[in-house]
Design a protein around this nucleic acid. Structure first.
Length: 498
RNA sequence: GCGCUCGUUGUAUAGAGGUAGUAUUCAGGCCUUCCAAGCCUGUGGCCCGGGUUCGAUUCCCGGCGGGCGCACCA
């Protein structure tokens, strides 16, 4: 197969090298929207998470982990039950599926549709004899389509698999208030599975029915949103902003301005929210995306979720799918805590300032990363083909394997033995490494290039005499001579992520 | 979900109503003193179900899955 710098070569690499397999289960023909990470993919994902955890601890975030299944009342309170169930209508003949409110607005532009009940919508469809736009047959009865996966727990308790991790974190509010000893903002995050019953999953792991989220929450006072200290430390940082008003002029090139300028020009209202945008950008940059591939795009008021006062997507440009959201930053106000207070009858009004007796329900700022999308966009943006050589130029600390060890030739026992010894030494230092003696030395280098292994160590005749080896660097393909006892140090130093 | 289209070794592909080639990968061997060399040997495949037929991987129907367009996307 000729190696070409194209998306087909990339897609085949992702499968061949054990990053992503599916749809799973493959041996039964697959189930749309479900994928598996192979060994290389799992390793990459773990390294992504470990970088997140390291950085989040630096920013002062606490980690929690909640159940993925929650009783119905949680979703009633969060608003998901209402918002995630769409009224739909099917054409009686061609079976085309439409969202009831949308199709009614289209067919009856002069009628007020918003807020109508299921019964009223049905009545409209019948009395007006509404017809399917694609085949002109009658539209059927209203049905419900639930984007949340429903299940039964115990005898007959209705429950739902969480469609986001955020809500489950909010349920911990009074515990966290105690734990953090009222030091606001409380910064907390949760990593875990979320599930959505997508009507038609597409684009591989970009839209799955079960996926990984890592969501950061800031519980913060209303006044504190305007005065947050952390903002003043980073207000001169420049980010690629694309606000919604600019988008209405069909301009999609981001404007690189500082957080302070964004606040002053009114693009962002609250310094604390600006700080959240900064965190999302900073964390994303740590993975090594190139500048031109990142933008922060603001949602128009119509595009926002039911809970959001302001919303931005951090997007990465991909060759295969265009701009992809890898992180959503939302100002959820006090919506969630207020609703959970109401439904749970707990008291979430607290005094955040010991000098006054004023009580308030904290505001919530949310930074929601999609881990699978980070993994995909990273793979794609690191994929590099030059002169028939595939190189997956992941940052060394993200590569599934850190080092590969080769004997220069395999039919010389002393060289093999020493190579195996060197690999054992690496393993003893807990450095993820790989031994390979099959094929020519060049072929073995290429194998590791495809996996993104940043360092290869080759043992040759000279090594037997002076205990030195060749270390070969993935991106430059340069080689250096180093002593065997220095290997763990040199590798460890090169793997440091800062 | 609708429409179009596609589904052949791990990957990428060829092909015909009589169960399959090619490239590469992979395993073993020979060779090899640093960037996919060469030679030999070997492993491995027609998405699932039904129908038509003496015979189906090939034709038909249905399902499942992929791609694209529409719809959907908290």
């Amino acid at each position: 197969m000729k190696i070409q710098d194209n998306i087909d070569t990339f897609n085949s690499l992702v499968k061949r090298r054990g990053f992503i397999w599916g749809p799973s289960p493959e041996i039964y023909g697959g189930f749309a929207g479900f994928y598996t990470y192979g060994p290389a993919g799992s390793a990459l994902k773990n390294k992504i998470l470990s970088l997140f955890r390291k950085e989040l601890s630096y920013f002062g975030f606490l980690e929690v982990e909640c159940p993925t299944i929650m009783p119905e009342i949680v979703w009633e309170a969060s608003g998901h039950l209402e918002r995630f169930i769409d009224y739909i209508t099917r054409c009686t003949k061609c079976k085309s599926l439409y969202r009831a409110d949308k199709i009614l607005k289209e067919l009856l532009p002069d009628t007020l549709i918003d807020g109508l009940s299921k019964k009223e919508l049905n009545k409209l469809i019948k009395t007006k004899n509404l017809k399917c736009p694609s085949c002109d047959s009658l539209l059927g009865e209203i049905e419900e389509y639930n984007l949340m996966l429903k299940t039964n727990v115990g005898d007959n308790n209705i429950a739902y698999l969480r469609p986001e991790t955020a809500t489950t974190t909010y349920l911990l509010f009074n515990r966290l208030d105690n734990y953090a000893r009222k030091k606001y903002p409380i910064k907390v995050f949760q990593y875990g599975k979320a599930h959505r019953n997508e009507i038609s999953p597409r684009q591989g792991i970009i839209r799955m029915r079960t996926f990984d989220q890592l969501e950061l929450q800031l519980f913060i006072g209303k006044e504190q949103e305007m005065t947050l200290e952390e903002y003043f430390d980073v207000k001169n940082e420049e980010l690629p902003f694309l606000d919604w008003k600019t988008q209405t002029k069909n301009i999609y090139k981001p404007n690189i301005i500082s957080l302070e300028e964004a606040i002053n020009s009114g693009v962002i209202k609250k310094p604390a929210f600006a700080y959240c945008l900064y965190i999302s950008y900073f964390l994303t940059k740590r993975f090594g995306y190139e500048n031109g591939l990142i933008r922060l795009r603001q949602h128009s008021p119509a595009e926002r979720a039911h809970y959001a006062d302001d919303a931005w997507d951090l997007e990465i440009e991909t060759r295969q799918y265009g701009w992809i959201e890898i992180c959503g930053i939302h100002d959820r106000t006090d919506y969630d805590l207020r609703r959970h207070q109401e439904f749970s009858k707990q008291n979430f009004e607290i005094s955040m300032d010991t000098s006054s007796n004023k009580k308030e329900i904290p505001q919530v700022l949310e930074i929601a990363f999609g881990i699978d999308r980070i993994l995909y966009t990273l793979l794609e943006s690191c994929f590099d083909v030059k002169e028939q050589r595939i190189n997956l130029k992941l940052k060394p600390f993200l590569a599934p394997y850190s080092v590969a060890v080769f004997p220069l030739i395999k039919n010389k026992k002393e060289i093999r033995d020493l190579a195996k010894k060197v690999q054992k030494k690496l393993l003893n230092n807990r450095i993820a490494s790989f031994y390979d003696e099959t094929g020519s030395i060049g072929k073995r280098y290429r194998r590791q290039d495809e996996l993104g292994t940043p360092f290869c160590i080759t043992i040759d005749y000279e090594s037997l005499e002076d205990q030195s080896v060749t270390i070969r660097y993935r991106d430059s393909m340069e080689q250096e001579r180093i002593k065997i006892n220095k290997i763990p140090d040199i590798i460890s130093r090169n793997l440091i992520s800062i």
